[in-house]
Amino acid sequence: MPEHVEPVIRVQGAGIRFRRNRRARRNFKDLFASRKRRARSNEFWALRNIDFDVYPGEAIGVVGRNGQGKSTLLKLVAEVILADEGSVTVRAGVAPLIEITGGFVDDLTVRENVYLTAGLHGMSRSEITLQFDEIIAFAEIGDFIDTPYKHLSSGLKVRIAFAVISRLEEPIVLVDEVLAVGDKAFREKCYKRIEELLAGGRTLFFVSHNERDLSRFCSRGLYLDKGALVLDGPIDEVLARYNDDHGI
């Protein structure tokens, strides 16, 4: 990448620390007596010493087994969680499709949720109204516009969430496995929309266990294992290394 081009994402020495859930002690005496020891033994690093830059228009595939930090990395980029060490700098807006129920309210209708969720992501009411019919048409959910969101199937929730988030004008798009829930025909429709976004110069972070999808969209990969960045390179090399490490 030319030196004069600034990265849209810069991650430097980033780490995030979580605490495992443990059964509560029986009384306060036990709790305070073992407080420091439990605090140390109960913590683990979901990610640590993570370094990489992402430049405008890149399509990044994030690879790794379950529980290795992939979704946590996307949440750091989306600023849903903050790093405990190092830094994560994001110089552009983010359209996150990382938690399918995030921002949607069960008791509101689909129509109300479209306005609420798009509004939370910065769209004005007039902009939402202008694009509302296209959102509903894309989701193929017309018969359920005035149905409470909680009554939708998981597949329909995926449809409306993707339809809303993919209409945002944010330069960075985060996708975390959620499309695996949808049916094959709609999934292909979503993939074509992702290709349109990439053709328009968007930057993509794509978490998936599907190698065909990763190779289809991404030119570069990040391989995470046990919270560490094992390899950052061309997607084919990253997938080959991952398969070799796990005997696939």
Rank of each mutant, 00 (worst) to 15 (best):
F32H: 05
S208F: 05
R202D: 01
L47D: 12
S87A: 12
I194S: 06
A240E: 13
V230H: 03
L222G: 08
I145R: 13
G57F: 02
K70G: 02
A180R: 08
V5Q: 15
I165A: 08
F52I: 00
E85L: 02
S34R: 11
T89E: 13
R22M: 10
A39W: 12
V94P: 06
V178I: 15
I194G: 06
L197H: 07
G201C: 07
R220H: 14
Y242P: 02
D146S: 06
I194Y: 01
W45L: 08
G93W: 01
P56M: 05
Y191N: 14
R193T: 03
R193D: 00
E79Y: 03
R17C: 13
G103S: 03
D213F: 00
E112K: 04
F32D: 00
N27A: 02
L174D: 09
L222C: 05
A240L: 11
G142R: 14
A137H: 12
D106I: 01
N113A: 04
M1K: 15
R187C: 11
S153D: 03
P148T: 07
F28H: 06
L229M: 13
S34K: 09
R125Q: 11
I194L: 14
K150T: 04
S71T: 10
H246F: 14
V54M: 01
K157T: 02
E169P: 06
R37D: 13
T72Y: 07
D236Y: 03
F28G: 00
G122D: 01
I100N: 03
A199F: 00
L120C: 07
S153K: 10
A39P: 01
V90G: 10
G182Y: 10
A199C: 00
P234S: 14
I160T: 03
F205C: 04
P171H: 08
D133R: 14
G119E: 04
E237N: 14
V105W: 06
S34C: 03
R187P: 03
L231E: 14
A95H: 06
D236G: 12
A137M: 00
D213Y: 00
L174K: 03
A180Y: 10
V114S: 10
P7D: 02
L82P: 00
R65S: 02
L204A: 02
V114N: 12
P96S: 07
F28R: 11
T203A: 05
G64V: 01
R111W: 08
P7L: 09
I141P: 05
E170H: 15
D236A: 14
L74Y: 05
A83M: 04
H209S: 05
G86Q: 12
R216L: 13
R187W: 00
I81S: 03
D51W: 07
A83D: 01
N49I: 04
R212I: 07
R212K: 09
F28K: 05
E112N: 05
D84N: 15
L108Y: 13
V5E: 15
